[in-house]
Amino acid sequence: MARTGAHVIVVGNEKGGSGKSTTAFHLAIYLLFEGYRVATIDVDSRQQTFTHYVRNRRAHMQERGLSLPNPKHFHLPSAWGDSIKENQRAEFDIFRRAVGEVEDNVDFLIIDTPGFDTNLSRLSHSLADTLVTPVNDSLIDLNVLARLDPDTGVPIETSHYSRLVQKARSERLAVDGETIDWVLVRNRISMLGSRNARQVHATLDTIASRFGCRMADGIAERVIFRSLFPIGMTVFDPVEDAAAEASSSHASARQEYRNLVAALNLPLPHRFREPMRLSA
């Protein structure tokens, strides 16, 4: 596909439960609060977690009379016809139309992908400027990137997902001479140091070096995210419970996302409006 005016952030990983949708939604709301124009696309036709997050937010805002930033959002369903070729053509058309509707009107387009391989997921990866891959802080979850030697932890075979990303990067380089900035994000980091955590970090560092990507710290495991999802809120939104907003967990989660945005090295163009007041 032709390149868009917006900077495209794809959040991808072929393993469920890594925090893709939570990460994608928090990135979108953070950038909106900072004054940037943001659109979002959910290509996970099965789970639709990102879309549920957006719907929960809109319903909560209407119920409470709140005025909070919301991205322009699209949910793209998979085609289920008998012909794979026709299905892929239909999915390409709907994907192209969604991107074309916003490409010149937003600063950032954030795409959330499913935890399995689909045509829409591959299309999304091919469009990425920045690819964010959240990985749980567990050696088991690293199999989504590579098969590891059980004794040394050294990658011995590239996974299906890593091959998908490498193909997308090669195609992107051939089309416009640009590459996809691939960032592995350690999510659900344990609050306590451990031998396993150190081994995960060392193994990810090896994988990043092998695949030509970067590594960044993500978000610790926090109960707060489970309570925010049903109302579509993020750690950047004002919450009615002042004690919750002032809690160390809430403040730490905000700072972790700020640190993640800084680590992504996103192009932050001139804002088209003044940023809204972010929670401290």
Rank of each mutant, 00 (worst) to 15 (best):
M1D: 13
A2R: 11
G5V: 07
A6R: 00
H7V: 03
V11L: 08
N13S: 11
E14G: 05
E14P: 00
K15P: 01
K15G: 02
T23W: 04
A24D: 08
H26W: 11
L27T: 04
A28Y: 05
I29G: 00
Y30K: 07
L32H: 11
L32N: 05
E34P: 04
G35F: 02
G35D: 02
V38P: 00
I41Y: 03
I41P: 01
V43T: 09
V43M: 02
V43N: 03
S45E: 07
S45F: 07
T49P: 02
F50D: 00
Y53K: 10
H60E: 00
E63H: 05
G65K: 09
G65R: 10
S67M: 10
L68F: 01
P69R: 01
P71D: 05
P71G: 06
F74L: 00
P77N: 13
G81S: 08
N87H: 12
N87R: 15
A90S: 14
F95T: 02
R96K: 14
V99F: 06
V99P: 00
V99W: 01
V102A: 07
N105A: 15
N105I: 10
N105M: 09
F108I: 05
D112Y: 03
G115A: 13
G115C: 09
D117T: 08
T118D: 05
N119I: 10
N119Y: 15
S121E: 11
A128V: 09
D129M: 04
T130N: 03
T130R: 00
T133Q: 04
V135T: 11
D137G: 07
S138L: 07
L139V: 13
L139D: 05
D141I: 06
D141P: 08
D141Q: 12
V144A: 13
L145A: 03
L145G: 01
A146R: 00
A146L: 03
P150S: 12
D151T: 10
I156Q: 12
T158C: 07
Q166K: 11
Q166E: 14
E171Q: 14
V175E: 13
D176G: 02
E178P: 00
T179S: 15
D181R: 14
D181K: 10
L184D: 03
V185E: 01
R186S: 13
S190E: 13
M191P: 04
L192P: 05
A197S: 14
A202N: 14
L204C: 15
L204Q: 06
I207F: 03
C213P: 01
R214S: 12
R214D: 08
D217F: 06
G218I: 01
E221R: 12
I224P: 01
I224Y: 07
F225M: 12
S227C: 06
L228E: 01
G232S: 08
M233H: 07
M233K: 11
D237F: 02
A242D: 12
S247L: 04
H250Q: 09
A251H: 08
E256G: 02
E256R: 06
Y257I: 08
V261H: 04
A262G: 11
A262D: 15
N265A: 15
L266K: 06
L266M: 11
H270G: 13
E274Q: 15
L278G: 01
S279E: 15
S279G: 14
